[in-house]
């Protein structure tokens, strides 16, 4: 299980990385592995605003559709259109090429509500493993 040190994590298996004032958001290696075979990604439009924890997109595997939730409140500044054509990128490179959106965060203090890599790893060992 790949859990990069430099990211922040949610209990719903999204990650966020702050890059020049923007947050880059995706789903974790654990999430893609649980979903397996991702065949469809639906992303929000640029300019859409979300509160921390709002559903802002959908990932569909062969078996089912799953919502994903924004780790931080903010306004979407970019969506990764490459995923629309090649959803399987999420399985191959969840922390890199398969980033999902960039957003302008409202309040970076919300980062305190997220887990660091060590906490997320512990979370997976306890609750996360029941999926």
């Amino acid at each position: 299980m790949n859990i990069p040190e430099d990211l922040k994590y949610t209990k719903t298996h999204e990650w966020a990385r702050i890059e020049g004032g923007e947050a880059v958001v995706g789903i974790t290696d654990y999430a893609q592995e649980q979903l397996s075979d991702i065949v469809f990604v639906e992303l929000p439009g640029i300019g859409d605003s979300f509160k921390q924890g709002d559903s802002f997109g959908v990932v569909e595997s062969v078996k089912a559709a799953s919502d994903f939730y924004t780790p931080l409140s903010g306004t979407i500044t970019a969506a990764n259109d490459a995923l629309l054509k090649d959803p399987a990128l999420v399985n191959k490179d969840p922390y890199g090429a398969a980033w999902m959106v960039k957003l302008q965060p409202v309040d970076l203090k919300e980062l305190d509500n997220l887990m660091d890599a060590a906490a997320y790893e512990r979370f997976l060992e306890t609750e996360g493993g029941h999926h």
């Binding site: 397996s36 075979d37 065949v39 595997s61 062969v62 078996k63």
Partner: peptide
């Protein structure tokens, strides 16, 4: 068993 590897 629902899958052993990738379903596809």
């Amino acid at each position: 068993p629902v899958q052993y590897a990738s379903i596809i």
